[in-house]
Design a protein around this nucleic acid. Structure first.
Length: 215
DNA sequence: TAGGCCATCTGGTCCT
DNA sequence: AGGACCAGATGGCCTA
């Protein structure tokens, strides 16, 4: 399996491949779009429909909207706004679905037990980060063994992280970087032992040895 | 019932 | 002008 760079996900998203997802119906969208204006509407948005009034203001408004272009009726403007909003909502929904598909693909390559509860989004990202770190360490260990077979086997403690973390982090799956800060995955993942088992230190170590044997 | 997670809508901003 | 991206708001569902 060739690793795919982040910028080139296996799911190629193009206008042609994008499928409208079954979700909210058009009716739902329309009803949402025609709902009363949200309280977050800017004063400018609220003022825009008031095109009537004095002539000077109307002229200014027309100029702002494109000068000589034919002024649209209030109904037409409202229709156009609804249509744009509906299209924007559709695009946003598809965008989020694509994002979720990519996340699912990522979940698919992470080692978890089949009966393990589905990883949440944040857990998936954190686990992927740690998993990559663990695999990197495995490769480094394999390199160490392969190129310096006569040297005493590198202890796990000798293999620090590229980020300069403290040695001995083989004791946990979590990269030194991930230990820091409130975003530490340990907080959320340590409550889910199944996530750790497939890449336990022993597993990683034997994996590295097997890898070295193959070379 | 509170809290976590998620999907969706929405308006703003930036880019083409 | 229109699309992509983002962040905030909101409501539904689920679980401890």
């Amino acid at each position: 399996m060739a690793p795919q760079p982040l910028g080139a996900p296996s799911i190629r998203v193009t206008r042609e491949t994008e499928q409208p997802f079954p979700g909210a119906s058009d009716n739902e969208i329309l009803s949402a779009a025609s709902a009363p204006p949200s309280p977050t509407l800017t004063p400018r948005d609220r003022a825009e429909p008031e095109a009537g009034g004095c002539q000077g203001a109307a002229r200014k408004l027309r100029a702002r909207r494109g000068g000589r272009s034919r002024p649209k009726s209030e109904l037409a403007l409202s229709k156009q706004r609804r249509s744009r909003r509906k299209k924007a909502n559709d695009r946003e929904r598809n965008r989020m679905h694509n994002l979720n598909s990519a996340l699912d693909a990522l979940r698919g390559v992470l080692p978890t037990f089949p009966d393990e509860a589905k990883l949440t989004k944040i857990e998936t990202l954190r686990f992927a980060h740690n998993y990559i770190w663990a695999l990197t360490q495995t490769l480094r260990l394999a390199d160490h063994i392969f190129y310096r077979p006569e040297a005493p086997a590198a202890s796990c403690a000798e293999l620090g992280s590229p980020e300069g973390g403290s040695p001995g982090d083989w004791g946990s799956l979590y990269s030194p970087v991930s230990h820091a800060g409130s975003l530490s995955p340990a907080a959320s993942l340590e409550e889910r032992p199944g996530l750790r088992a497939p890449t336990s230190p022993a597993c990683l170590h034997s994996g590295a040895l097997a890898f070295a044997d193959c070379l």
